[in-house]
Design a protein around this nucleic acid. Structure first.
Length: 638
DNA sequence: GTAGGGTTAG
């Protein structure tokens, strides 16, 4: 007891301890076992182990609970150690250790699990099912089927594992065929088939199956319905979802509480609500929420996320305050809501008040800083995250790469690159942002390296990033060469590709090439030109001194010219000393951005160059009158 | 204490 006290008191395990002392003398072993399993269930594995180690008498259940704790955490080495130390293993211990090996990724583990399965002194249906589903989940359907056929007594659970396995590997037809030949289905068979079909995008087929076989077992049928409602909802097919929802008898009003009856449950309502939230129909979502008899945390969270989505933070935080027991998801939604709607202070306030943070909480807050262009804040939070021992994942790193881009911080960028290589393959889309980061930081060679490391799969964004990098470095020949290569490989360019291509032409003074590309974009690729493309074209013409053509283009383009368009023209006017057009462009720019000093400064310099001192002075006075402050280093063309 | 199925946050 004394050792137990010492080990536990250090681990702030006060509640477990007091109840334990209370029952210590009067309780048999199973009370201890219950404590261990409770600790494991609430994720307190180390405390469970301390208790386990301090126990004088243990039975198989004690050992098995501890092993199951490690198996759940995927700590297979520790589980195996206990398994080996265990004086008398029973069938549950064997099943646990086998399932532990099969739930670890990697063929080495699977082989070891199989070896243990072969060594088992006896097997029950759980042993067989563990190995079958283990193979199925790891894409080894050949082995799964072999064992399934070798099983002495098949049951529904093993068949269900086979269905899941086929569907995990995308074998929709095999799964449906297998389901139809099964001697009996239970509710889980139908649910497994429906959810697998949904995952494979076969929603209408799933609906057909549901209506054909749903009658066979009304027991727990609602699970399958819920899966399909959610499946339709997630794809924005709200009418189909609603039709299914309406097919389930209402759960309100009736007094009888027969769990087995086919009725809506809280998940049905939540899934239907989610479908409305997905399409932005907050009114219908709210209506359902108000009509529900039983709400769980997920119901509140779904509605909160709906209000967050439409940027109604007043209502979202009102619900958050009202809800009975907010969990980490609720907090994350609120933090995300404020961060995405530009209220970083409130986001930070809630982030710091959170009782528990998980990886997503950190990612949400870092992404919030990044979105609001507070790059320093994001970088600070990222280092705090690492200090607190939270491991970044690809979402974290993706935000932080953008942060490096924003800060133009090559030093931090290279560090992040190191981390990225540890967690993703060179073919991951996250490397696209590394290309952009490197080229924005002036390290075009590093950008090129990342680009070339993607050997197996480059998507359009990869190509766009690299072409854009070349273009912004003035390497027009390289940009155009890469663009040619991209087309040869039948990668379909996007409007972003053409912005870079046209920019490259502008830098290199390739007027004719620019015109050709612009035309090709519309006629060969059917891409609607955007205002950015016109800005590039104006830039191209302007740099060549074709100012009148540039002005004509501005007058005839189907958009209201933006600051990039006028900025390009104004720069060109300065280079070619065209004061009249410069005045037009500067005037337009000032109207678009009254607080910007750049047009004034440019005009002033032009007049000064032409030694028209009076006009120059007029511009300076005007600028003072409008109370525009001069800022250094500002340019529109980039 | 072990095998198969459902909803919410980056």
């Amino acid at each position: 007891m004394a050792t137990l006290y010492r080990t536990l008191s250090r681990r702030r395990c006060f509640h477990a301890l007091t109840s334990l002392t209370r029952t210590y003398y009067s309780s048999p072993l199973h009370q201890y076992n219950k404590y261990i399993s409770n600790l494991i269930r609430s994720g307190r594995l180390r405390e469970a182990r301390a208790l386990f180690d301090s126990m004088k008498h243990r039975n198989a259940v004690t050992w098995n609970s501890m092993i199951s704790g490690y198996v759940h955490r995927r700590e297979i080495v520790k589980a195996r150690q206990l398994f080996d130390e265990m004086p008398q293993r029973d069938i549950v211990s064997w099943n646990l250790i086998v399932s532990g090996y099969f739930s670890c990724r990697g063929s080495r583990f699977i082989e070891e699990g199989r070896k243990l399965f072969e060594l088992m002194p006896q097997r029950d249906s759980v042993s067989w099912n563990t190995v079958i589903s283990g193979y199925a989940k790891n894409g080894r359907m050949d082995q799964a089927m072999k064992l399934f056929n070798a099983m002495p007594e098949r049951n529904v659970v093993s068949s269900n594992a086979v269905i899941t396995g086929f569907l995990l590997n995308g074998n929709v037809d095999l799964a449906v065929g297998f389901f139809k030949t099964m001697p009996e289905h239970d509710s889980a068979s139908l649910s497994a088939l429906i959810s697998g079909l949904v995952r494979n995008g076969e929603l209408d087929m799933a609906a057909g199956i549901l209506h054909e076989f749903g009658g066979d077992d009304k027991d727990n049928l609602v699970h399958a319905y819920n899966t399909l409602i959610a499946g339709y909802g997630q794809r924005g097919h709200v009418e189909e979802a609603r039709r299914l929802f309406d097919e389930i008898p209402d759960d309100r009003g009736g007094g009888e509480k027969d769990q087995r009856r086919f009725r809506r449950n809280v998940v049905s309502w939540n899934s239907m609500m989610m479908s409305y939230v997905k399409v932005g129909d907050i009114v219908s979502a709210r209506e359902l929420f108000d009509r529900m008899v039983e709400r769980d945390t997920c119901s509140w969270n779904t509605l909160i996320s709906g209000y967050v989505q439409i940027s109604n933070m007043d209502e979202a935080s009102k619900l958050f305050r009202e809800m009975p027991s907010p969990d980490v998801l609720s907090w994350n939604s609120i933090v995300s809501g404020f961060a995405q709607n530009g209220n970083l202070n409130l986001a930070k306030y809630f982030f710091e008040k959170m009782p528990h943070k998980n990886l997503i909480s950190w990612n949400t807050m870092i992404a919030g800083y990044e979105k609001n262009e507070d790059y320093k804040g994001a970088a600070r939070l990222f280092s705090q995250m690492r200090l607190e021992g939270e491991k970044p994942d690809k979402h974290t790193l993706s935000s932080v790469i953008s942060v490096c881009t924003g800060l133009v911080d090559l030093y931090l960028g290279k560090q992040i690159h190191q981390l990225v290589t540890k967690i993703v393959l060179p073919d991951s889309p996250i490397n696209n942002s590394l290309i952009t980061m490197y080229s924005r930081c002036g390290a075009i060679v590093d950008a090129c390296t990342v680009f070339n490391e993607r050997k197996l799969y480059k998507d359009v964004i990869t190509w766009n990033a690299m072409i854009g990098g070349y273009a912004s470095h003035g390497l027009a020949a390289e940009a155009l060469e890469l663009f040619k290569l991209m087309k040869r490989l039948k990668i379909h360019p996007t409007y972003i590709t053409f912005i870079s291509v046209l920019n490259a032409c502008a830098h290199a003074g390739l007027v004719e090439e620019g015109r050709i590309q612009f035309k090709s974009m519309v006629t060969d690729y059917g891409i609607e030109p955007r205002v950015e493309h016109f800005a590039s074209l104006v830039d191209i013409l302007g740099r060549q001194g074709q100012l009148k053509e540039a002005m004509d283009l501005i007058n005839t383009m189907p958009f209201k010219p933006d600051k990039a368009v006028w900025g390009a023209l104004l720069s060109a006017c300065r280079v070619h000393n065209n004061v009249e057009l410069a005045i037009v462009a500067a005037d337009a720019l000032i109207r678009l951005e009254p607080e910007s000093s750049a047009p004034y400064v440019l005009l002033y310099n032009m007049y000064a160059n032409l030694r028209q001192w009076e006009d120059a002075e007029r511009v300076r006075v005007l600028m003072e009158e409008k109370n525009v402050k001069k800022q250094a280093g500002y340019s529109w063309v980039d």
